[in-house]
Every structure is written in structure tokens, then in C-alpha cells.
Nucleic acid binder design. Sequence first.
DNA 1: CTGTTAGCGCTTTCAT
DNA 2: ATGAAAGCGCTAACAG
Lengths: 336, 336
Amino acid sequence: MPNINLKRLSEELGLSISSVSKALRDSYEISAETKKRVLAMAEKLNYQPNPFASSLRRKKSITIAVVIPEIANNFFALAIDGIQMVAQEKGYHVLTYLTHESFQNEESTIKHLQGGRVDGVLISLCRDTDSTKHLTSLHETGIPLVFFDRVPETMECPTVTTDDYESGFKATEHLIKAGCKKIACLSLSSLLSITHKRVHGYQDALKKYNMKEDPKLIIECTNNNQSNLEVIKKLLAKKDRPDGIFATVEKLAISTYYVCNEMKLKIPQQLKVISFSNLRTASLLNPSLSTITQPAFEIGKESASLLFRMIEKKTFGNRIDKIVLKSSLIERNSSR
Amino acid sequence: MPNINLKRLSEELGLSISSVSKALRDSYEISAETKKRVLAMAEKLNYQPNPFASSLRRKKSITIAVVIPEIANNFFALAIDGIQMVAQEKGYHVLTYLTHESFQNEESTIKHLQGGRVDGVLISLCRDTDSTKHLTSLHETGIPLVFFDRVPETMECPTVTTDDYESGFKATEHLIKAGCKKIACLSLSSLLSITHKRVHGYQDALKKYNMKEDPKLIIECTNNNQSNLEVIKKLLAKKDRPDGIFATVEKLAISTYYVCNEMKLKIPQQLKVISFSNLRTASLLNPSLSTITQPAFEIGKESASLLFRMIEKKTFGNRIDKIVLKSSLIERNSSR
DNA sequence: CTGTTAGCGCTTTCAT
DNA sequence: ATGAAAGCGCTAACAG
């Protein structure tokens, strides 16, 4: 902890503590002359205000929290980048919490945040979240809360998402047009808004092209990578294996690549794969991969901007913003 | 901010504030009976302590800061994952700051942290850092500081790094053994410990195999992606272009892939590339890529563990830890 | 324009 | 075993 505080500064300057405080906050009550002296002395002694004293008194922390399932994930890393950019502009600090897809972690994190440690919370739900009690409880304490990407489906709240349904539809359509007759869909969890909607788009695309939907082809994966690999392997080992795969999240696409690699299945000749992915180098490393790329950085920026509007009460009364951004479909020569 | 505090709790229970406080901290001065009552009431009213009051009083924040150049970067994302894991175990909060490779940002961030907002700092320097004044200043306030990966070379301090010199040596040797006659080296900045050491390894490998070192083949890149692309393009457009490239950081490898893609240069037939990379899927997407992979997650864990040892004063007096982990060289069929 | 004063909510002696 | 009281460092009325 720093040992040089307002008291010390004021003694050094022969001023009262409050005058020094006001000078430092550039109050109109203080003469330009004094301000200069104070600033100079603060600089000289390398004065750094104690943030806790200030937060305690002013009842604001100049800090926001970001709660996400994981960080070693291109989407979330980019989103955080966008969030940090906005936060930095506003002079806010950013606390990051990882839930590792565990509802328990999410719950306890949110509970801790009710202590007033932050002025606002950005959150992307974990795959197991099936209750919103902790979230409404946080909301009730008056702390602004914005959901991004993985949002609750049964709660009125501000959200920033992408066009999941449309993207799922288009991705599937892409595979159909590329000649696929049997398309599997890898989903994370039916509880999750994103996969739920993406799968719905998949189903409707099949319907549109009069392809019958086979429930066994919609595979709900777990949070265990090993078991996901096995399930995918089993799927692709079948004689009548699918000729197309729609992976609703990047991680499952990577698992698919891995299995194909192991089984010597050629993409796209033997299996066409399309996935949500923010692996920006994927098509550089393998030019035949089609992806749906979310504007992750923009999602981060939009979410943070919305949150700050709420913190600064610049958003009206009980208006609830729902921002939807567009993903981009990057089609490669998978039809070749 | 929460409205339910110790005062309210104590009124509800008919106890004094201090007794309630002690009960919640499980003090031996309080009877088991009372503790139970207090805990129950705290639970019932969903009491969350005000972290600022506590921090102000106890002069500790239960928070650490992580200062890194960027987050949309596989190495740093994984490192943060490791850091968060340890921090979470210890019940600490994690503040993240991005410098975006700007020395100014780094300086002002470090300066802010002198206010006592955190109990310790983990930092990986930005490419332009050429002074350690801000760092020694932070150190002098008594806040424990651990450097990881990008560490200062002119300052006695605890560090967690990988075997950069050896890896650079081996990577270059790999290219030489694969038949390369003219090997270029893409460096980020000579100010940076990691690239400095990696380039040194490159130079010594050339020496060992009696290949003359051409200073024009050691290319110091900038923080501007566009201009890096142009430099690489120019390098590869030459009639006597190199037949091997050693990229000291992942970003430059990706730029290289990109240029090769554009110029229709085949990797590895026409150009062998090896790079530091934590793009775990690289070889999945293109099986001919060789990489040096750093144990990023472990680096994060080790750094955080070391920091906590320092915070808890479990590390002796003026002992300075220097932890070096090993990278792994993943050799692919680039010699074919 | 400057100073005095009363807390913010919590921890921690020190009494009882 | 419990309570009274001081104070962490800062801000914001309110006086002067």
C-alpha cells in the first residue's frame, strides 16, 4: 500500500485535506494558483489516491466485471479485447472471471459481485445454466447487467447477440447446396441460447429443402473433450456416415478436424464441414474450410458501450436494448 | 451498491456490529451458538460484505493485476487461463490490463497500480519498453511483481520464461537439417527479451553449421501488421528469396502464411516455415507446419504461484526466483 | 476560495 | 463472550 496520502500532501503544502482533494479533482472552488501547486506536489511525491477510500465514499468502483465460460477461445478473447477498449476509454478497470462452463462457479461469482465490487457486469452464460435466480438477484441490487452471445431465453434483459438462427440456416443451406445428403449437427447444449437457435436454423433449412430431420444426427456434446471426440468418431465410423457436418461452435469443429485427421477422412472430399469459428487463420491454413465468423470484437465493444450507457443512466427508464449483429458466412470451395 | 450491511445485520440480530463482524470471520472470541445465528441471518438477508471498506481497513485488496500486450493471442489467452486458475484457488480477483504494445499505456497502467488497487502484479512487457523506471518505482512501493515471458533484461527481478535461446537454436537447426540454405528470421523487436534471445539462438545455429549470417535476413518487424506484410512480401518476392523462415512469434508466422497464400508459394515445398506458436490447431489444419509451442498455461500457473508466494511472504528475504520452462518442438514433414 | 466536519462500512484493539 | 470506539483515506456538505 502507498504511504503517501492526502493528509501527508496537505501537510506538505500547508493546506487542508479537503482543499487538496478538491484541487486534485479540479473543483471550481479552488484557485488556479493552488491547483498548480497541489498538482506539482502530488507529482513530486508520486501521490496515488487510494481507490478503496474513494470507492467506499463515492459508492462507485470505476470497475466492471466480465464473466465468461473460458478465455482460451478465440471468440471470447476477441470479445474481451473489444470490452477492454471501451472500458479503457472510459477509465474503467476490468475484472475477469472464468466459469469454465460450471453453473456453480457462475452462481458464486455473481453472488460475490453483489457486494458492490463493480458498477456493472457483462456476462456470457455457461452451458449448464438452467436457472436465472442468481441473475435476477444481481439485477435487483441495481447493478446494470448486459448479456452477450450466450443469453438467457427466459428473462427480460439487455442483450448483444449475433443472428444465430439465420447463420445456422445459411450454414446448413451451404452444405445442402454443396451436395450434402446427410448432415449432422454438433450442438453444445440445448440450454444454451446460441446452440439452441443455431440448431433451429439447421432444422428449418433441412425442412425448406425437404430433407427429413434425423434426431440422431443432432448431437448434443458435453463439456468433456475426450467424450466428444469419441462421439464424433463413432458418428463418422458408421457405414452410412454423414457427408456434411455443421458445428455450432468452434471447439466442436476442431474436434471434428481432429477426428478426420485421425481417421484419414478428407475434408471436403469425403466430408464437408462448416462451423462457427473465430479462428481467423483457419482458411489460411486450410483453404477448403467454410466458416461462419461472428464479429466478436464488435460484440465486445457493443456490449460494453451498452453497459456504460446503463451505468451512466443514459438509457431511458425501463427500456431494454436487444442488439443483434450479423455474422459473416465465409464460403470456400467445399463444393468442389 | 448493496444496502444490507453489518449495521443492519447487527440490528436484526440484536448484537453489536463488532460481534457480527467477528462471527462472520469465524473469530475464536465468538460462541458457536452466536456464529450459527449470525451466519443464518447473513444468508437470509443475502449479506455481501463491502469489499472496499474491508480493503481500506485491512490494507489488502485480494486482487492481482495482469498486464499484457494483447489478449487476442493464443499464448496470452492460455497464460491468463493458468493465472486465473491459481487466483481462483486463492480466492483472489484478477484485473486485466492491455497495453497494446504501447509503452505509454504500460507506464500509466503501472502508475495507477501504485495506488494499492492490487496486492501483486504479473506483467509481460510490451515491445517498446526501453526503460524500467516505472517498474522499479512500482517495486519500491512494496507491491510484489513477477514478469513472465517478456521480461526485462537489465533488472534484477523474479521471472518465469521459456528456453528462448535453445528453442531458437533448435528451430533454426531444424530448418538447416531440412535442407534450407538461406534462412530468414522474423523478429519483433530487439528490445524484447524473447525475440532477442530467440534471434541469438538462430545466429548461433547458423554459426554451428558454418552458414554465414546475413543481417538483411534478420527482419525486425513493427507493430503495424500491414507494413509487416509488405516487408515479408518484399522478402519473398526476391529472386534469391530465402528457402526457410523462422518466425519468432506466432503473429509473424500467420503473416507469413498469409503472404505465401497470396503469392501462391507452397509451404513446405517452396518455403519451409517454423515458428513459435500456440495455435494448437495449426498442424491439424495443415500437417506440414512445424512449431515451437510454449507451455503457456503452465507459465501462467507458475507465474501466479510465484506471485502468491511473494504476497504471502513465503519466499525468503531478497531471494529472486527465475523459473525457466521448456518449449516443445513439434517437427512435421517439412523435410520432405 | 479555503477549512471543518461527518461519515462511507468494515476491522481491531481494548474494555467489560 | 460481547460491545464501544477509533480510524483506514477519501469526499461532500456546510461554514466561514
